[in-house]
Design a protein around this nucleic acid. Structure first.
Ligand code: MN
Ligand code: MN
Ligand code: MN
Ligand code: MN
Lengths: 222, 222
DNA sequence: AACTTTATTTAGCCTTACCTAAATCAATTT
DNA sequence: AAATTGATTTAGGTAAGGCTAAATAAAGTT
């Protein structure tokens, strides 16, 4: 029953998941950019995934792509591997949060279910990875995220950083230097509606963050 | 300067190394059997490896194959990864010695040099893996093995088990059940020159081992 | 409505690493 | 020396997963 998926297939499904997480199908071009592949290659792969049985994606020409139930399970499997691996690499080998992603990106495709289980066990079944992102459960369900983007915080509101999207190592190093890591308390002290710049206080420091940054940080109001 | 090798290439080189370790070139058929691939495929791959520049193998039609200096380095790189990974999986995730091999077989190809170094560090730069096999050094030299096959032990000689070839999980489970693991002291109490059976004493137990087993165990006389 | 631009798909190729079947080589036997 | 056998190589395919260039569709403009 279980087909074994190639590394490429797993990467396609993972990226489709991330792009369609907040509904809205993923476009060929966006996927191509994420996967660092040409749009024509994406079309080809998507067609194949749609014709698998059971189908892994739902696809209508020119309308973008979404995951089927099977596709979503496969995507969550990879994401669970990725996030458990990141957590483990940080905890046992002293990786920093800007270094783990790349390593996990390759390991996620080759570990066994046994390995996954041993790591989960060793870590005490963590809920979030080092970037604060939720780890899918062992039965492949994604827990509900109740945090909101930092970009929604307004003057005089306070919050605690929950997570940061982990794609860009440079951004992560930058944020760490500013002290903007999970569990940090912050307070909005100004917001500029024209450029969407948000001025916040972190400890004693004051920082001004643009939308491209505030969109990538999730917080919980407190 | 450094070409990146595919997983297949790495596996070919690793198996060629193991087959040529005690000089004598590796034959197409033997390699095919080890790699679980058809002889024709081996010929094809070997021809490619011989035509790389720099060449990774030395090859003359119908004469078998050996590694060049570059090929040997590449092979030792993979073997170092494999053995460090085995050691680490056993120590940090509680794998047993018959389980680690398969997992390491896949991980060995995807870890970074950074990962390798962190693991080596975390383990205190171990000299041998859980099967007692020597781990190539960080600068890719294989330490000299001064242990000898158990098959050379004769009546009334005593020795300590140094290592066991790790290929076959069933054999490993069998040996563990008999208490035949690294650092165990044994004594030869009989040898039959006709069938090469060796009778040994392990603790209080007496065991009779065939040549196919005694050849896979290395000991140091004491 | 016609035109232009951008997004997407199709068509045709390439590389890697496998396979099977047929051909050839090398080592034994007779 | 000839014939047989086993090992190895060659020839011709296949399946993945990329690529470029050309064709088409959709969306935005005049
Ligand atoms: Mn990946
Ligand atoms: Mn899993
Ligand atoms: Mn391998
Ligand atoms: Mn290495």
């Amino acid at each position: 029953m279980k087909k074994l998926l190639t590394i490429s297939t797993q990467d396609y499904l993972k990226h489709i998941y991330e792009l369609t997480e907040h509904n809205a199908p993923a476009s060929t071009n966006t996927l191509a950019a994420r996967l660092k592949v040409r749009p024509a290659s994406v079309t080809g792969m998507i067609q194949k995934l749609a014709n698998e049985k059971p189908a892994l994606v739902e696809y209508q020409k020119h309308q973008g792509v979404t995951l089927t139930k099977e596709g979503r399970r496969a995507a969550l499997e990879v994401i669970r591997h990725h996030r458990l691996l990141e957590t483990w690499l940080v905890q046992t080998l002293g990786y920093s949060w800007d270094e783990v992603h790349e390593e996990a990106e390759r390991l996620e495709h080759v570990i066994s279910e046994d390995f996954e289980q041993r790591v989960a066990e060793a870590l005490g079944h963590p809920l979030r990875d080092p970037h604060g992102e939720l780890i899918p459960t062992a039965n492949l369900e994604m827990p509900l995220e109740d945090a909101t983007p930092l970009s929604t915080l307004r003057k005089n509101q306070r919050g605690t950083i929950v997570s940061v999207r982990d794609a860009d190592a440079d951004l992560l190093r930058y944020l760490e230097r500013l002290g903007l890591i999970p569990n940090t308390h912050i307070e909005a002290i100004d917001y500029s509606p024209f450029d969407h710049n948000l001025t916040i206080k972190v400890g004693e420091q004051t920082r001004v963050l643009g939308l491209s940054v505030t969109n990538k940080i999730l917080i919980k109001e407190d």
